[in-house]
């Protein structure tokens, strides 16, 4: 009976949307009329109030202008190859990387790869990651690095939990989200966004908007694999977690899962 009533209600709501009147619906369903009438009246009231909410005209126009600019930039970028400035910037950063390696020594860089937050080599680990990103020659390669770094942060959380250290877990969890956002928007855009320099990611690193279909497919596949490994690592740490670390770890698992799902949702375009 209830399911029948649900179907009748759906049909009547569709009729009201098409401009029909409540009286006509009630006439066509006399057995349900007494129950149907207040429900349809409530529906009309809800819809009437909802339809009164509109975005401010100036805000809507402003967002349109912004998106139009992004859209135009993206289209222009599709047909553009390497610009002189892009080449120049990459070359300069590559030189910095060479100098850094010469002065710091490869041994330290390698040793830092296993460092955890709070340890002296951790800063070198992060700088090395930044240099890798800066010297990477393609957006596709950058995206792969961001996925790899997100996974590293998950690994670091798991290791910290095993060592009973919890204070860095929220920051590392946020960093997983940041790295995954960079897969879509690019690292510089996200950095500016977080620093409050721009309201939204800039167009310069909006690479996913102009990526080839095969590239997007590959990134999606990598994200699925990375998601599985990261969550496996975090869930594995659950059994070795102290009671005090448990809430932070559980939150990290939820947030990490959500961050991967959000990124995949956007790329898969379901």
């Amino acid at each position: 009976m209830t399911q029948q009533m649900q179907d009748v209600l759906v049909r009547c709501i569709e009729r009201l949307s098409a401009g029909d009147r409540v009286e006509n619906c009630l006439r066509d369903y006399p057995e349900q009329a007494s129950e149907l009438k207040p429900l349809l009246q409530t529906t009309i009231a809800v819809r009437r109030s909802c339809s009164a909410v509109k975005p401010r005209a100036e805000y809507k126009a402003k967002v349109y202008d912004y998106l139009e600019q992004l859209y135009c930039d993206r289209q222009a970028r599709k047909g553009r190859g390497w610009s002189f400035f892009a080449w120049h910037r990459h070359w300069a950063v590559a030189m910095i990387a060479v100098v850094m390696v010469l002065f710091s020594g490869m041994g330290i860089v390698v040793a830092s790869s296993g460092a955890l937050p709070g340890e002296s080599l951790y800063t070198i680990k992060l700088v090395t990651e930044k240099v890798k990103l800066a010297t990477s020659v393609s957006d596709m390669h950058k995206a792969k690095l961001h996925i790899q770094f997100a996974e590293r942060r998950a690994d670091e959380i798991a290791r910290l939990v095993r060592e009973g250290k919890t204070e860095s877990i929220p920051a590392l969890t946020d960093e997983i989200g940041n790295q995954l956002n960079c897969v879509i928007f690019g690292s510089r855009a996200m950095k500016n966004f977080q620093a409050g320099d721009s309201q939204l990611p800039s167009t310069e690193n909006f690479w996913m908007g102009s990526a080839e279909e095969s590239e997007v497919t590959e990134i999606i596949e990598l994200l699925h694999q990375s998601r599985e490994r990261s969550l496996h690592e975090l869930n594995d740490a659950l059994s070795q977690s102290s009671l005090t670390a448990l809430p932070s770890l559980e939150q990290a698992i939820r947030d990490t899962s959500q961050a991967y799902d959000d990124t995949l949702l956007i790329l898969e375009g379901d």
């Binding site: 975005p55 401010r56 805000y59 967002v63 912004y66 998106l67 992004l70 859209y71 993206r74 879509i184 928007f185 309201q199 939204l200 990611p201 909006f206 996913m208 908007g209 102009s210 990526a211 279909e213 997007v216 956007i266 790329l267 898969e268 375009g269």
Partner: peptide
Amino acid sequence: ISEAEDLTQEVFVKAMGALSSYR
């Protein structure tokens, strides 16, 4: 309002970024 405005803008920016992957 101000949060709804920010979030709506973000939705459209994200959607535009992923438009080429839309099937």
